[in-house]
Amino acid sequence: MRVAFVGKGGAGKSAIAGTFARLLARRDGPVLAVDSDPMPGLAFSVGVPVTDAPIPDEAVQERAEGEEGPRFRLREGLTAAEAVQRYAAAGPDGVRFLQFGKLRGSSGGLLRSQFAFRQILSSLPEEGWNVVGDLPGGTRQAFFGWGGYARTILVVVEPTAKSLLSARRLARLATVDPPPDAVVAVANKVREPGDVELVARRTGLEVVASVPWDEALADAERQGRAPIDAAPDSASVAAVASLLDRLGKVS
């Protein structure tokens, strides 16, 4: 299974993606959790004890003068699968965690690992690895193909005006080329009976899960712990488990 979570900042992408990755790993073997947000997010929510695990410079080589193709690529002879084994951090339940390196100062220098990150995702064989991706808030990365590895795009939506608007734009990811198999919504921070209906109506998307507002998630966040570790029996973790059931049946 290959999915990517998108949505407005703060909608709950990381919390849900991290929980989803852990549950998927328990049920269905190897999961690569990927974070393309240059700020820490997913690592905490998966429960990986790192905030900075970049793809190192020596894994990447620059295009030779006169050669075709992207400016940087994985070093000659290094396959995507090997790069994952070597550079993805190990997390609980066997989840592996990959990011393209964290933005720090004004010096930039992320370009090399960004190219490598995208190459790994586009060439990792589909057999053997489930992929769960967490994109930064907003629409930019999503429309520039950063979620291109995903067969299902999950738009995380809060029942707020801003989040609904952002999700409505993201719904157009169904029309990119090549299109994903499905673009669907996950309603999050649901508090009122009409919220799910509101999300469906305002985004035009099918709502495949409804995650309730859950104080336990806020507490987990303050502790810097993964929701599934801090609150395994919470209503929100149960809702993510239902999401996994539902997607498992579809694909």
Partner: peptide
């Protein structure tokens, strides 16, 4: 924008 991208 969230994060420090714009600040850089």
């Amino acid at each position: 924008e969230a994060g420090i991208g714009t600040l850089t």
